[in-house]
């Protein structure tokens, strides 16, 4: 399919129309709402700015040593300096878990809560499910840094 420049005419052949139809059918057969890719979710969060890797010690993501129940995993998000913090989990149905904004009366840039870390993919037999986490911080207007961590899970997550 090609629009001819200068002529303002969009030429559609019978073959084009048919292939469009097949494409639409294929799109309908795919799962209704595929999980958003982590990169896309982060890009939406940062407004398209690519986060740099955080320098050592500037960002911290605290996780328990052993995760027994993936539905309730205590996490500590910490940054030396940040206006906003967000935690993303690659295998979660909704990739962004929480978005924290610090206001003028905030103290240390530290936030604790608990999250669901279960994944949608079934791990291989005998292997633990692995969840990739990314902590993104806006340290200055439109300047983002990120920290990536992988955690292995031994309990179920979203299903319950």
């Amino acid at each position: 399919m090609r629009a001819v420049a200068g002529e303002n005419v969009l030429k559609l052949t019978r073959r084009d129309v048919l292939s469009l139809g097949f494409g639409a059918t294929a799109a309908m057969l795919l799962p209704a709402r595929p999980a958003m890719a982590m990169g896309d979710a982060i890009a939406i969060y940062t407004n398209g700015v690519v986060p740099q890797a955080a320098s050592a010690g500037s960002l911290r993501l605290g996780l328990p040593q052993i995760i027994g129940d993936a539905r309730r995993v205590p996490v500590v998000l910490e940054a030396v300096q940040a206006r906003r913090l967000a935690l993303f989990a690659k295998g979660a149905p909704s990739v962004l878990l929480a978005d924290v904004r610090f206001g003028p009366r905030a103290g240390a840039r530290r936030f604790e809560t608990s999250v669901r870390l279960g994944t949608q993919d079934t791990p291989e037999r005998g292997a633990d499910a692995v969840q990739d986490l990314v902590l993104v911080a806006e340290i200055e207007p439109n300047r983002f840094v990120q920290l990536e961590t992988a955690v292995s899970l031994s309990g179920g997550g979203y299903a319950n």
Partner: peptide, 17 residues
Amino acid sequence: ETVIDVRFEPGVSPDPE
């Protein structure tokens, strides 16, 4: 004055603390 403002997604556990 704002101390903190949080937006939760379904990935946050029940009874969030």
